[in-house]
């Protein structure tokens, strides 16, 4: 049996939405080098719709795949929907993750939520 599902390997090998958004209006970074996974999410939100999302990740296969899948799940969605994203949804969309890798999907959820919070803060401070 392989370590990861085909879906995980697909998103790991061909990660979607990799990169940065120069004029992002919501940025979130979570994780730390100590535990071995760091994710950074960039959001471009217009009219409360996530027009574009990109990520950068330092981490293992499941961390990269989780980032990729999380961006796919929220792209084009209204902010209110994106806020409901859970790590479980990310893991399920990847056809599951090994138990000891679930923390990677948690990180993906946190990265998205952190970027959304940044967006809200920026809006309030305008």
């Amino acid at each position: 049996m392989a370590l990861y599902s085909e879906k995980v390997m697909d998103h790991f090998r061909n990660p979607r939405n990799v990169g940065v958004i120069e004029d992002a209006n919501g940025i979130g970074e979570v994780g730390n080098a100590k535990c071995g996974d760091i994710m950074k999410m960039y959001l471009k939100i217009e009219d409360d719709i996530i027009k574009d999302v990109k990520f950068e990740t330092f981490g293992c296969g499941s961390a990269i795949a989780s980032s990729s899948m999380a961006t796919e799940l929220i792209k084009g969605q209204p902010v209110s929907e994106a806020m409901k994203l859970t790590n479980k949804a990310v893991a399920e969309a990847l056809d599951g993750l090994p138990a000891y890798k679930m923390h990677c999907s948690v990180l993906a959820e946190e990265a998205i939520q952190s970027a959304l919070e940044d967006y809200r803060n920026r809006k309030e401070n305008k």
Partner: peptide, 11 residues
Amino acid sequence: EGIEGESLLLL
């Protein structure tokens, strides 16, 4: 520096 080992191994 700047990368993680498992993803390196998988690739």
